[in-house]
Design a binder for these strands. Sequence first.
DNA 1: ATGAAAGCGCTAACAT
DNA 2: ATGTTAGCGCTTTCAT
Lengths: 333, 333
Amino acid sequence: MSKITIARVASEAGVSKGTVSRVLNARSGVNEETRVLVQGVVARLGYVPDPGARQLARRGRHVIGLMLDDDLRRGGTYYGILRDALEDCLSSEGYHTRVISTERGDAFSTPPDGAILLGVHLDDPRPAQLEERGVPFVMIGRSLHNTAWVDVDNLGGLRDAVRHLVALGHRRILHITGAHTGQASVQRLEGYLTGLREAGLPEDASLIFDGDFTAIGGYRAVRRVLGSKLAFTAIAAASDEMAHGAVSALEDAGLRVPWDVSVTGFDDIPLAQRHALTTARQPIAEIGAAAAELLLERMAGKPVRSRLLATTLMVRSSSAALLSTTSSTVHQH
Amino acid sequence: MSKITIARVASEAGVSKGTVSRVLNARSGVNEETRVLVQGVVARLGYVPDPGARQLARRGRHVIGLMLDDDLRRGGTYYGILRDALEDCLSSEGYHTRVISTERGDAFSTPPDGAILLGVHLDDPRPAQLEERGVPFVMIGRSLHNTAWVDVDNLGGLRDAVRHLVALGHRRILHITGAHTGQASVQRLEGYLTGLREAGLPEDASLIFDGDFTAIGGYRAVRRVLGSKLAFTAIAAASDEMAHGAVSALEDAGLRVPWDVSVTGFDDIPLAQRHALTTARQPIAEIGAAAAELLLERMAGKPVRSRLLATTLMVRSSSAALLSTTSSTVHQH
DNA sequence: ATGAAAGCGCTAACAT
DNA sequence: ATGTTAGCGCTTTCAT
């Protein structure tokens, strides 16, 4: 059984390759009857156009650069999934993804035909460089530039976590922040504050603890909290890693999650599932898909668009209703 | 400036497209002089072959499957780097990498022309499935099967770390193991024991602590150690994550690294550099390159070969010579 | 509205 | 050892 080509579809439908192509690409100027006929044959044969041939014939260019600094690339979980999602979407459209390491300096020896930027900083030179060279691009994460971007609703995610905790009866909710440098941390902190505000709870700076997105950071934050005799019943961390560290520290101090303290994370990495952590899930695959879509639009010369994707609160067993006794409030053990 | 094609390279080099193609694909039957000449022009022009056209022109589809379970793919650091290395090597040979998720079950709707297997378990069905379908493959990590594999010398790496600690004067060296299930953990433990044996030190089961490859696991292991009044001056952890957790726990207990305790890791992830951790570096990119090479050999019908890659001990400031006073031995604080 | 034919950039036979 | 040429599967003129 050899591969099904457009020629096969054409002959089987009794039309020319050109007509089949027109149908495939939803081009105008095809008789409704013929269109239906061809679509039928396509479906029956299970024909899938060859992406490579397609791009080749379209005379377009086909290389998409995935630009990131090595640190991010080595940074873990997020990158792998995102990369896979991106590749999935783009390769089916006939594009080929190439990783361009900022550090290796091979950035522009051969500019790609389009680019996806990861980990863009405020004074990042890449957007300007690409602009200058006329390479269309989409950034993952928001920016001030007037460019296309895709981002997750960090604020909304943390706000949802706080809402959830408030609904469970919690009033003394701590927040462990991520690294100061990132936009995401700032937005998540803002989400935390928004959640408190919505619930009519006071914003109390003493409830906010610095983390660094690592499990150890979360662990240590809780250690500090416990050392400070602060009263609290819940912790909304800015990442799953930190939430995991926080849970561990609570356990090591003899507190039980969720009975004594409720904890929520952010991201929904596999670790969150393993530890049954309530968390705001980032739709990483969707972010990749959206980025691919927007980039293709840009490459087609369409106007700049951006997308903010919502998180989904995954309620698991690290959060529970506050017991209605006053004694349940945790004081220094 | 229009796109640079093989024709452009050919004319610029004063040869035919065929010759350029032969050079590009490292085919035999090209004069050394011409080869160098063409390579020069390719480099000067920054020519990159169009992946689509390439795939189209080749008869077969030339698709390499990257098979892993989603858990591994989401597992972080290692995967991202490896994937990049693999893609680098394979795409320059005209192959296209496709991620095949074991869980998504799309494994064999269209079998790839070759496959790289990650995270193979003892009773993994994939090797047999591939064998049955005649798909050549290479596994990353050793196995009992008579198949090609690439692996890092886990035993040697840990042994080197222990040797290093012994050379610094350490005698009471702890080991924190990884997850029990993995081959890598077992081999690293074996390396630890080998190191002790070489130095004429006794194998003492009470010096071995269970970790789980996470920072929190390392942190907790050290907590247990400190709670047990065990005397020790160094820790050889089976991963950087765990070493990092161990260092944190030591610090939190008022001990200073490396003055009071020396710590070594394994992997050399970016975190190890940030925290100046002495560690056995895994040559991840080389592993990818070797896997690509061996797979290409297999696909060319050459005999099965395997490769064991050495680690490199990166000596940084988490390890130091043992002070020659007896009092430097750490007891329960 | 449809068909015929000319490429897109590349590889692989077949010549030389 | 190198040049020549015929496609690979598709889109896109240009005819009809």
